[in-house]
Each structure stands twice: as structure tokens, then as C-alpha cells.
Design a binder for these strands. Structure first.
Length: 252
DNA sequence: ATGACCTCCAACGGAGGA
């Protein structure tokens, strides 16, 4: 199984890139974030024509998540159970015995802000739900745009803002790994300063001024078959790119 | 530097992103 996550920053704008990339990479499962459109506006026909089933949790203007799969998606869950969230950030489904949770974590804006408090509350709710979910599904993948760079090496040394690298955010990330989830990317050797997001401004991609905030976390039974995990930076050089690159994990 | 760039909106400036 080849599984990927990609924050497309508008499904409508990025659809040509997505379709080209699906044809080239042939992933089996793709979690998408920041659709920025309602379910009714999702270009289902084009994605289905590319060979994918899809389940979405759309929202106008902001947020919105989807899971694409070559095989059918079962037991679809939208948002975090028991957490009344007006923002569309989570979708989960069972695919060939693997519970796949695709999430668009809150940005948090600035440490200490209202949005930061929401980010931490959201992370607590996600963690509580996943504790139960992992007990039900030993093979589980948590993937998406985490908006957290878990270690210093996951942020450019010149990143001066606290957001995405603060102690509370990193503690929340550690709580997730404490559930028995492993960062698939760190199971392999990578160059220093490997990132998944680069600001649109200031030639950030050319200067590799970025953060590694898009992740694929997996439970122990999936580690045995994990054979690769990479960031695909190629899409970031296209015309009108997403500011995030896809991250791809290969099992088996 | 209250910046820069991109996407969205009952839009033409502001919000949000990261």
C-alpha cells in the first residue's frame, strides 16, 4: 500500500496538479487537507475518473478534508466524536484493514491567542479519541497537516515564531506518539533540513526556508511492513503550487 | 517591518494561513 497526505490549499485551484500527481505516483490512499470547498463543490467525477473512491468533509472557504482510495472506504467517521467542532478537520475510514485518520490540525496563529487555545483543546480531543480508536484498530495511520514541527531539526534554524514549534504543541505531539504512534518519516535517513511546507513569500522554497509539519504516524503493526517514507518536493516547483508538499509512505 | 504571497469572499480590503 502506498499512502500519501497532501495539503492542497484549495482543491479547486490544485485539481490539475492533483490529477497529474495521482497519475504519476499512483498512490493507493491519499488524505487531502484544506479543500476550501463544500462537499457539493468537490470535483468528484474527475477524481473518480482517475480511479479513486472518495469521502469528504467539506467546508466553504476554510478547512475541509478528504480521503481518496483505490479500494472501498468503510466505517467513515467525520470529525472527532464527542467534540463539537464547527471546523471540518477530520475524516477517518477503514481501508483494507487499516484505519486511516486524515486530519487538518488547527494552525494556532500565535502562542497565547484564542486560536492557540482552540488548537490545544482540539489536540486533547483528538488524542482522547485516538486512544480508543487504536484499541479498536491495531493497524492505524494518523496523517495530515499537523501544523507542528515536532523537533528542532524539523524547522529551519531561522524560524523565529513560536507557533508550530512551541513547547505545548510539541508536548501535544508527544502525547500522540505516546499512544503508540511512530513518525514514519523518522524510520529512515534523510538530508538535514528536510521540510514539507515553505512560505509563499520571500522565495522561501528556493531558500529552503520551511517546516516539516505534514506527517504520517503509524501504529506498531504497520512498522514491520513500512519500506519508505519521503516528501515529494516536485509539486512545489509547479506554476501556482500548494505551499505544502505531499508526504508518501510505502507499506510492503 | 503592522511587510512579503496565496485563496477565499454577497470580495475590490480583510481574514486566515504558517
Amino acid at each position: 500500500m502506498k499512502l500519501a497526505t497532501w495539503n492542497v490549499n484549495s482543491l479547486k485551484v490544485r485539481l490539475p496538479h492533483l490529477l497529474d500527481w495521482l497519475a504519476r505516483e499512483q498512490p493507493d490512499v491519499v488524505c487531502l487537507q484544506e479543500l476550501k470547498c463544500e462537499d457539493a463543490a468537490v470535483p468528484r467525477a474527475e477524481i473518480e475518473a482517475a480511479g479513486y473512491h472518495l469521502e469528504t468533509l467539506g467546508q466553504k472557504t476554510y478547512n475541509g478534508v478528504a480521503i481518496l482510495s483505490r479500494t472501498s472506504l468503510g466505517a467513515v467517521q467525520r470529525n472527532i466524536p464527542g467534540f463539537a467542532d464547527p471546523q471540518a478537520r477530520v475524516i477517518a475510514a477503514t481501508i483494507e484493514g487499516v484505519r486511516v485518520v486524515g486530519a487538518y490540525f488547527p494552525n494556532g496563529q500565535a502562542v497565547g491567542s484564542e486560536k492557540f487555545a482552540y488548537k490545544l483543546e482540539w489536540l486533547t480531543a483528538l488524542t482522547q479519541w485516538l486512544r480508543a480508536e487504536i484499541a479498536l484498530h491495531p493497524k492505524l495511520v494518523l496523517t495530515g497537516d499537523f501544523n507542528i514541527a515536532p523537533e528542532d531539526r524539523d524547522a529551519h534554524p531561522d524560524w523565529k515564531d513560536e507557533i508550530h514549534v512551541s513547547a505545548p504543541e510539541r508536548a501535544a505531539f508527544a502525547a500522540l506518539t505516546g499512544l503508540g504512534l511512530t513518525d514514519a518519516y523518522r524510520r529512515f535517513e534523510h538530508p538535514e533540513r528536510s521540510f514539507s511546507w515553505w512560505d509563499y513569500r520571500m522565495n522561501a522554497f528556493r531558500r529552503n526556508f520551511g517546516l516539516r509539519i505534514d506527517h504520517i504516524l503509524i501504529t506498531a503493526p504497520l512498522i514491520e511492513t513500512l519500506s519508505a517514507c519521503e516528501v515529494d518536493k516536485s509539486t512545489r516547483s509547479l506554476e501556482r503550487p500548494s505551499d505544502h508538499a505531499p508526504v508518501i509512505a510505502v507499506f510492503g
